[in-house]
Structure formats: C-alpha cells, structure tokens
Design a protein around this nucleic acid. Structure first.
Ligand SMILES: [Mn+2]
Ligand SMILES: [Mn+2]
Ligand SMILES: [Zn+2]
Ligand SMILES: [Zn+2]
Lengths: 152, 152
DNA sequence: CCACAAATGCAACAATGTTGCGTTTGTGGC
DNA sequence: GCCACAAACGCAACATTGTTGCATTTGTGG
C-alpha cells in the first residue's frame, strides 16, 4: 500500500507545504506535534534542548515558527499572560467540534463536551477570520488547594 | 436629594473601593471611563498627555492600572498582539448583553446585535472565571482597500 | 554538480512590563 | 488643623519577549 495520501511525517509536511526542509524546521514541527498543549517560545527552546541536540538560535526559532504559521502548518495564538503560543495545525482539526477550557493557574487546556457556538452574522463589509469561545478559570486540581501545578 | 447611592465620579469610586485617592488615579480612572475601547499602556500615556497635564511616570501608570484592577475598578485583558488592555469595570456592564467584533487591522471594537453564548457546564471541581466569545476579522473599512487605518 | 534564493547565526535593537529603593503624600486618629 | 505612618510615587536599572540588519551557510531545482 504505497498510497500518496495525507503526509504525516514532518519532512513530508514541509515539502507538501512548499517550504524548504531544514533540520530546524523538522525538529520544531516534531516538537509541536508531540506537544499536548500550545507551546510558547521559551518552552520550545527547552523542549528542543532535551533531545541532546545542539540548542537552536533564538531568532532562528522565532523565524521557523513564523514560517510554519505562514505556510499553515502551525497556529499562533496569544495566552492570558500576553505570550504567543504555537501549535501544530493538524492537531487543531481533531478539536474543531468542541470547545476548550483553559486553566489560568496551571495553563492546562481541557476538552469540554459542548459544541462551539455558531459564528454571529456580521454587518455589511465585515469579514470574519476567527470566532473562538474563550472559556477560562481554574481546573479541579488548581481550584481545590492553593498550590498551582506550574507556578511560574 | 442627597442620596448615598452608587458613586459615579472617579474620586468617589476610589474612596468606595477603599484605596487612596491620588491625582494620578483620578486621571487614569477618568481616562478609562472616557475611552470607547480598552486602552493599552501606551495609548493611556498618550491620552493623559493631551490634557496639557504633566506626563505621568511609566512605572507609576503601570502601578495605578494594577491597583485599579486589584480593587475591581478596572479590567485587564490581553489583545491579539499580546498587549494588555485596560477598561473601566463599570463600562463593561453596558456591553454585557451583546458580543463584540474586533478588527485585527485597525484594532477597532464593534458592538454586534447577537447575544453572548451561554457558558458551558464544566466538569466537577472546575471553576469558571470568564467565558468570552472572541470574534475577530476585518471591519468594513479595512476589508475593502488594502490600507488599514492604523498601520502600526 | 552549480547557482542562487532561502534559511541561519549573531549582534544589536525595540516594545512591554517589573523590581528596588529613597522620597513624597494621602489619610485616620488626635 | 497636625502628626505619624503606610501607601503611593519617581527614577534607575533590569527582565522578558519579540524584531531587524547583515554576512554566511545550505537546500533545491535544473
Ligand atoms: Mn479538544
Ligand atoms: Mn458593546
Ligand atoms: Zn489548572
Ligand atoms: Zn478595521
């Protein structure tokens, strides 16, 4: 079965997206796919360091993330602290039909059962880019005692 | 009619909130009430300068804003660029029963006719702090031609 | 294998926000 | 009205996050 279906490994994804396949991009895309929640720049730097590989230049990482966002392989959003967080674009699609809860203490993101609300009708000439129901508060672990998991 | 009802001028609000009434806080709270959309730190600095009054120290402004948030007189949120924006707490209530559209080009915020979606039911132990329907894209002025109002 | 555009590494810069500390000021108690 | 004192302020320095310029290296189509 040598099907030419949806590519899955980072290199193929990069090729399919039409941007150069560089070691840095492969590593970053791999890290994004392996992450269980959107990562900020600092977390990515740390994450990339654990592999024992050489640390990546800060600016290069920023530019790689931008290039992934530009070609649609990654998504960029801002968290409540005002920091940009990145996620693999594919990972979002499986989360398209329910809403999420974000814990403002530990930063964790939890899937809820509820469907996303329908996008509102806009005035003439307005163009909708994104409509997201942002639900946040404290999760069960962080609500009970006073010690959050990730103080930071 | 010397009623002791809801205070409305900045000084009374500050007194009622239990924090010291300083000229800086009065000016900032006044600016927040006069604003038609949440202001970031830089916009507030500019806004405060127009009165012909002496410019306020950057750090003092940050601390005043924090104190207003801490006592509940102001609200702090982060915009899509990752910048904190502040609004008078009272000003929110008149916008509580409809949702808003944010133009990602010019930064403008527009009131829509639609009602906010009901908050979802959460798993056991979770505590809801805020549920906001974030609807963004480009407004009529910014959608048509290619020149946004506030390029920045 | 080559040419060349794209990507990278490094240094410097920019925007936003925070901390420390000495000085000034608003406020409750008298 | 005056005093004491905690709170707020002004200033300098610092921290974090993100960007720009430019010379060097590298991936890729031909
Ligand atoms: Mn999900
Ligand atoms: Mn409104
Ligand atoms: Zn939590
Ligand atoms: Zn606009």
């Amino acid at each position: 079965m040598a099907s030419a279906s949806i590519p899955s490994n980072p290199a193929d994804l990069l090729r399919a997206a039409g941007i150069k396949v560089t070691p840095g991009r492969v590593r970053v895309l791999q890290a994004l796919h392996g992450a269980r929640q959107p990562l900020c720049h600092g977390e990515m730097e740390a994450q990339l360091g654990v592999d024992g590989e050489a640390a990546m230049d800060r600016v290069t990482l920023y530019r790689i993330l931008d290039s992934l966002v530009a070609c649609g392989l990654a998504l960029k959003a801002v968290d409540t602290r005002g920091v940009f967080r990145f996620s693999a674009a594919g990972a979002q699609r499986q989360h398209a039909n329910h809403i999420h809860f974000r814990c403002t203490d530990c930063g964790g993101v939890f899937c809820l059962k509820a469907e996303p609300p329908p996008p509102p009708t806009l005035p003439e000439g307005f163009r909708l880019r994104r409509a997201e129901f942002d639900v946040c508060g404290t999760c069960d672990r962080c609500s009970g005692d006073t010690t959050p998991l990730v103080p930071r």
